[in-house]
Design a protein around this nucleic acid. Structure first.
Lengths: 236, 236
DNA sequence: GCATATTTGTCCGTATGTATA
DNA sequence: CTATACATACGGACAAATATG
């Protein structure tokens, strides 16, 4: 197993990588279900039936149950003993908690902007551009996705793998609220320009202005999400 | 389903709680394994054998596998496809990431101290006292636990359930490093007094001094953990 | 309240795939 | 390359809890 004679310790990095992301059926299934849930295909509160899923996708019940555990662990679903697994229904407190965290973490990330290495900045710009392109194509769900990518990019300035994963999970929860919204356009459209503004302020080294704008942005977002959430709840 | 005629929506809170607490074998098993792992009973890198665990605890392989998924999701174990599940081995980058997050999050929490409600402060004092009591009893692992509770208490000032859970998981990872340390006393003892100092500064509304002290504390902690970690690695 | 059907919880056996000596 | 050991995944079985009429 010695690699000394033939190169560096990472000459087989590709193989190592391949080994790392080799993954079982449960994880793949969890990924499928996660996508369906955050896209609103399974509405919040709806039941994820073991039998339906394992017959539709031709996997065994054990595998389905392993995937369910992962989704519950990510708060995208809730498990009630002997009753089943259900798509998570967010409460007002959940939404407020998510926005409280976003304000806290994104502001902390912005404060570290001056020390941000170049490669962390490109994804942020790309997210802005993807949002604009999706808006032109009238694809407002993709605009929402790009918006979340923009904010994930902000967080990535910190360069903490754990924080990246955390914010990704938290924003995935938020998509449970987006998923039941009508009028995605009226919600997302104003933020296209506001993202650009924040980015411009950051690029011009006006970090404090950017932080203030970001806080306002997130306060407005919280208010709007809560309001639209209440409206959609009132309908049902 | 109406509860209007007979009282509040929470007249059956005890029942609700009982339903929530009802939990399957996999979660209970995960809790057992989690405790064992963070206490160092299973050393980092050691293998968690499906067969051994399911024969020792009389549970089925399926149940064990469900519990394993949860531990892997919490980063306390790693899953290598078709090879098995192993207790996580932290790298230098992991330890640095944990401390980077602690500095970021605990400082942010301290900044919100003036708005902290009274009930979030009591657990912090209690953790300090538990640490002192454990030191008197020469129980240095409990001192370490109390120290982590102190810092969890700081974070709880923010009153974010998600952040609380996040920091709990991150600190659980850190215990993987503590678990292999000899000389727990020389590591933990100095921090008993430093925790008290931070707490005193906070109580006296000297938030900025407290924050500075906290940053120093965490920088020292990171340095010491990395050093002791290297020493224990060198032995092996 | 009761009886029934449905669904979950848990365990087991087995065939296949993968890694390692 | 072979053999062994183990993980992966499936499917069946039955008990326990729940939902339905």
């Amino acid at each position: 197993m010695s690699s000394v004679e033939s190169g560096t310790a990472w000459e087989n990095a590709a193989e190592d990588r391949a080994r790392l992301d080799r993954v079982g059926t449960a994880e793949k299934l969890a990924e499928i279900l996660r996508d369906r849930v955050v896209e609103g295909y399974f509405p919040p509160g709806s039941r994820l039936s073991e039998e339906v899923i394992c017959s539709l996708l031709n996997v065994s019940r054990n595998t389905v149950r392993e995937a369910f555990r992962l989704l519950c662990h990510e708060r995208l679903a809730v498990h009630e003993f002997a009753r089943g697994v259900f798509v998570r229904e967010l409460s007002d407190e959940d939404i407020s908690d998510v926005y409280r965290l976003r304000r806290m973490l994104e502001c902390a990330a912005v404060r570290e902007f001056p020390a941000a290495p170049q490669e962390t900045l490109r994804p942020i710009e790309e997210a802005i551009n993807r949002g604009a392109a999706a808006a032109l194509a009238n694809d407002w769900r993709s605009v929402g996705t790009a918006d979340l990518h923009f904010h994930q990019g902000i967080i990535r300035i910190v360069q903490s793998p754990r924080l990246d994963e955390f914010i990704q999970r938290v924003l995935a929860e938020l998509r449970l609220a987006f998923a039941v919204m009508p009028n995605l356009r009226s919600f997302h459209e104003p933020y296209l320009e506001r993202n650009r503004t924040i980015w411009r302020l950051l690029s011009e080294d006006k970090a404090e202005l950017a932080e203030m704008e970001l806080v306002e942005y997130l306060k407005d977002g919280e208010r709007e999400v809560l309001q639209m959430w209440h409206e959609s709840q009132a309908q049902a």
